[in-house]
């Protein structure tokens, strides 16, 4: 690697390291570091929101809204605006207790999403949670595609202490769903949790397969409360919006489960999804054990969103970088 090459990367690294070492958290830095609300202030706010994966559009909307509020309510102090901002996002992301009605009713929970987001793990965690609430739970292992997916869910059924309906690898997942629904009715199960194979939302035939499964549940179990949950990985960027849109096309989504919130990603795309599609986040995944599922708390979410480490230094370090020499 040439010296210039190292120059660019080294500088970027240095900037990021400084970021990490700075202990002042984002929102506090933002609101205490500025004495007035000006362009620099909004730029800083933009950075925090974008870095939280809210995306360009949601970020612009929020900033526009804040600017309006500043004008309308004659807000002068950054600290005042802080309250407004936090409240606004918190309110938007709020979930009511009514959204969790399925936990107490006879219901079918259809868990869908792209590959590796944590569907199977989430089904396991949900089963554990519902068992603790003394619900009678049955699992359907409708991922008949991925190698050892059935075994993986079997282990979770074992951990949660519930029954499981399974098909062989390569079997038609719709038939597994059919069998599971029949069993749920026959055994008078409270909640049927359906794990499905991960699929990218742009694969037409695989999405059709999901639509078919959804139809079967509707047809075979019309009286059950339907809960269609899309699992999104908090680490995912703007594509999560597209995922929510497309999965919403095959089944009416009633909620989002945002996994891997124990990492450093903020999951801000959920704000954009809520704005555009009005789908609430109902649970978050915070680890790999059976207890690592929490009801969504908009308060904690917003606080974490703004808990960004700031770095002014980075900008100074970037002067005179000549990309042409990289």
């Amino acid at each position: 690697m040439s010296e210039e090459k190292l120059g660019f990367f080294a500088r970027l690294k240095k900037g990021l390291t400084k970021t990490r070492n700075n202990i002042v958290s984002g929102l506090d830095a933002l609101f205490s570091g500025f004495s007035k609300i000006d362009d620099d202030f909004y730029e800083e706010l933009e950075e925090i929101l974008i870095m939280g994966d809210l995306g360009v559009r949601a970020t612009e909307n929020i900033i526009d809204e804040m600017k309006e509020r500043v004008k309308k309510d004659h807000i002068k102090e950054p600290a005042q605006l802080k309250e407004v901002l936090i409240e606004s996002i918190k309110e938007q992301m709020q979930v009511t207790e009514a959204e969790y009605a399925f936990e107490k009713e006879q219901s079918v929970v259809f868990v869908i999403g792209v590959n590796g987001v944590g569907k199977t793990t989430t089904v396991g965690k949900l089963a554990g949670k519902l068992k603790n609430e003394n619900r009678k739970v049955l699992m359907a292992a409708a991922d008949t595609f991925r190698a050892a997916a059935g075994e993986q869910l079997t282990e979770w059924a074992h951990r949660a202490g519930c029954d499981l309906i399974q098909g062989a690898e390569g079997a038609d997942p719709a038939s597994v769903i059919f069998d599971a629904v029949s069993a749920a009715k026959a055994r008078n199960v409270d909640v049927l949790l359906c794990d499905t194979a991960g699929r990218l939302h742009n694969k037409k035939n695989l999405m059709e397969e999901l639509r078919k499964m959804n139809r079967i549940i509707d047809r075979e179990f019309p009286n059950a409360h339907r809960e269609n949950l899309v699992v999104l990985d908090a680490t995912t960027g703007q594509n999560a919006l597209q995922q929510a849109r497309e999965f919403g096309e095959v089944a009416d989504l009633t909620g989002i489960i945002l996994t891997k919130m124990d990492g450093t990603a903020k999951g801000g795309i959920a704000v954009a999804i809520q704005s555009e599609l009005k789908i609430p986040v109902k649970y978050i995944g915070v680890g790999e054990t059976i207890d690592d599922l929490q009801k969504f708390d908009s308060n904690a979410f917003v606080n974490a969103l703004f808990d960004v480490k700031q770095s002014e230094e980075m900008d100074d370090g970037t002067e005179n970088v000549n990309i042409g020499e990289i």
């Binding site: 990021l16 974008i50 870095m51 939280g52 994966d53 792209v114 590796g116 990985d233 680490t235 995912t236 960027g237 703007q238 594509n239 999560a240 990492g263 450093t264 990603a265 903020k266 795309i269």
Partner: peptide, 10 residues
């Protein structure tokens, strides 16, 4: 994962 967002750098 190619879909990773802002956190990819971390």
């Amino acid at each position: 994962d190619a879909m990773t967002g802002q956190d990819a750098v971390n």
